[in-house]
Design a binder for these strands. Structure first.
Lengths: 234, 234
DNA sequence: TCTTTTATGGTCGCTCTGACCATAAAGAAG
DNA sequence: CTTCTTTATGGTCAGAGCGACCATAAAAGA
């Protein structure tokens, strides 16, 4: 750690955000349309530069509020750093990628920076500006892994949720169908994952038997983990 | 991603390295003694600033060679980004922490930058400069998780190794004793983790029955993972 | 020769899991 | 109202995986 002043150069440091949500069983991501060159008019991840006395997490929450209108509490996770010299054609930018898991997005309000923000199903998030395709894929993989070992799935749900809603989060992120009965057994058998909510059951969407409500539990790690049913690649 | 030129400021971007190795069943980490203020004389993680056209991974490998003499192929993993505004008292530095898993460290050669590098058991890595205690702890946790789901443990071993050597890597990183027979069953039952090496068996250290040699296999993920025997925190 | 140490193979019982089946309770269709 | 569809929820059952062992083999050291 020789902080030799002759050997460093200033960089711009930015945060990029992969904001995920699950609606109607579909994993969606928030994108913005770029208003300036380069890549004017193309879709990109929301994000922006760190201010002089901001940490990356603070910048991520500020940019998220500014560009998409998502302000409340949500789960923010580090994904990685992207530092290739030519990832931005204008200057040297090191980007700290984060992912945000939000329960439900308010519709973008016109007249704000969020006006150009839109949600798109993850599968249809076409070619993005810069290296954002790679960042988005890394973020998706990261979220998939988070669901295995942490209760992060509850971050996609409202404060009170049914096990069916929670299961649809897993199915949307992993892209696989899960057996409802087995999923229930796993979740209820993992201490601290969920706690029963008081009050009556709730209809999931008008159809089917009303389901019991749960809240997120105190656990920060899942023991045992919910294993992603991806067969061993022999 | 509004790259508004009025809203960003330049930062210094550095890499910090948690270099781990396992010797005699003990997890060791490489530290350097700082030669200048602040924290002159205190121990710190090796690291340094990114050069103008370097990626973080390139800078990490260069600094590792310069400061510790570790040059050969080793496994390098991202740990996280540290961006709190006051983590360095001189200026705004964003540090990209990495961890390197090396099989065996050559002794630091006098006369090079590596002369002041030293290895210390992880448990004895005392208070470090800056926020390097936190970075080191995060890196250790990261490596522990890597051992569960990836064949990263082989990166601590020479090209040909015995299952006993591989097991001692897990024991050193996790700080727990593992049953040799069960460990063997798990490793050999995980496809692609290890492949038998041709040639005769080898003595582990002079004592005991000679052990068969193995090479690292082609797998990049372990299915199923080797679960860390940390009981559920009820 | 005997003890110690390490590698390696096997057994046994318990737990977890996936694949089911069955029932309950709601709306929708007739 | 009756029947069908949909979802929730509870249960069973066989197989895989795993932890806790035990036993044997093969080396060095006493």
């Amino acid at each position: 750690m020789t902080y030799d002043k002759h050997r460093y150069e200033p960089f711009a440091v930015a945060v990029d955000l992969a904001v995920f949500t699950v609606r109607e069983g579909v994993l969606e991501v928030v994108l913005v349309e770029r208003g300036e060159e380069p890549h004017r008019g193309r879709l990109a991840l929301p994000g922006g530069f760190l201010r002089p006395r901001e940490s990356a997490a603070e910048a991520a929450r500020r940019e998220l509020a500014e560009e998409t209108g998502v302000a409340g509490g949500f789960r923010l996770e580090e994904v990685g750093a992207y530092s290739e010299p030519d990832r931005d054609p204008r200057m040297r930018v090191v980007s700290l990628a984060h992912t945000a898991l939000v329960p439900r997005l308010p519709e973008p309000r016109a007249g704000t920076d969020a006006a150009r923000a839109l949600r798109l199903p993850y599968a249809e998030a076409g070619p993005l500006a810069f290296d954002h395709d790679r960042i988005l894929a890394d973020a998706h993989r990261h979220v998939g892994a988070l669901l295995e070992t942490t209760p992060a799935a509850t971050a996609f749900c409202p404060p009170a949720f049914t096990l069916g809603e929670l299961r649809r989060v897993y199915e949307a992120v992993w892209g696989t169908a899960l057996d409802p009965a087995n999923f229930r057994r796993k979740v209820l058998g993992t201490p601290g994952f969920t706690v029963p909510a008081p009050g009556p059951a709730r209809l999931t969407g008008g159809r089917g038997k009303p389901a019991a409500l749960y809240h997120a539990g105190p656990a920060t790690r899942l023991h045992p983990p919910l294993t992603h049913p991806e067969g061993p690649r022999s």
